[in-house]
Design a protein around this nucleic acid. Structure first.
Length: 237
DNA sequence: TCTCTATAAAAGACCA
DNA sequence: TGGTCTTTTATAGAGA
């Protein structure tokens, strides 16, 4: 049951919405944790994926299913999609540095298959982070607040706020500056995605936090975080 | 317990 | 031309 003592009534106008600007909020000590870094790089060689699939130990290649070889390493933990063009996508790394290190390791694996790969154009494409604001959040309030604040803005400058718990239990917030997307849950846990740099991710979280802090559900304890299930192990390295 | 729902991003083949 | 496929990761509901 949500706490109905909050200020938002059913007939609010934009001017009734309380200010929730970062400048008015105390500085946050909550730092989002990086959970996944996706990056690309170019090995600058044409590759026979059948050869890599045969010779690399942790390779999955099902050309009818997908056009790349999947390589996995444990340290740093990461997965790569290697394409015949020599382009590579690195996923699953916990930091930008790990993604780069992993990328170089994947290049070395390709080299062991008889190629002379380069390692060019390394670029971080997406960073996913998560954070816990420390209390439960009234998602309808946040959604409504954002919509009302943006009602006078041109459509292309509006932040998107979508909450339909019948479809997905999280509030989807599309921020414009920086361009990141938040998934906000009643539990107070937040997923941030779409950032190109960790600075963007931190800045986005810093800007959205006052809204989440404002719509605290008083007296509702955060659910205990479930233990992470162990994911099915793929081939070993 | 697994799969699906939703989010971002890249790669490149393939199909309508 | 644009959608789908695959991979990763946090998050959390519903349903099989």
């Amino acid at each position: 049951m949500l706490d109905e003592t909050h200020l938002v009534s059913t007939n609010l106008s934009a001017s009734d919405v309380p200010e929730a600007q970062p400048s008015q909020a105390p500085p946050s000590t909550i730092t989002p944790q990086l959970q996944n870094v996706v990056a690309t790089a170019n090995l600058e060689i044409r590759i026979d994926l059948n050869i890599v699939a045969r010779q690399a130990r942790n390779a999955d290649y099902k050309p009818k299913r997908f056009t790349a070889v999947v390589l996995r390493i444990r340290e740093p933990k990461a997965t790569a999609l290697i394409f015949a063009s020599g382009k590579m996508v690195i996923t699953g790394a916990r930091s930008e540095l790990d993604a780069r290190l992993a990328g170089r390791k994947f290049a070395r694996i390709v080299a062991k298959c008889g190629y002379h790969p380069k390692f060019l154009d390394f670029k971080v494409q997406n960073i996913v982070g998560s954070a816990d604001v420390g209390h439960c959040i009234r998602l309808e309030g946040v959604e409504r607040h954002i919509r009302l604040e943006d009602v006078d803005k041109p459509v292309n400058q509006r932040r998107g706020a979508a909450y339909d718990p019948d479809i997905f239990p999280g509030l989807v917030l599309r921020w414009m500056d920086p361009r990141v997307v938040f998934l906000v849950f009643v539990s107070g846990r937040v997923v941030i995605t779409g950032a190109k740099t960790r600075e963007q991710l931190y800045e986005g979280f810093r800007k959205v936090l006052p809204y989440l802090k404002y719509y605290v559900i008083e007296g509702l304890a955060q659910p205990v975080r479930k233990k992470k299930k162990k994911k099915k192990q793929h081939s070993q390295d």
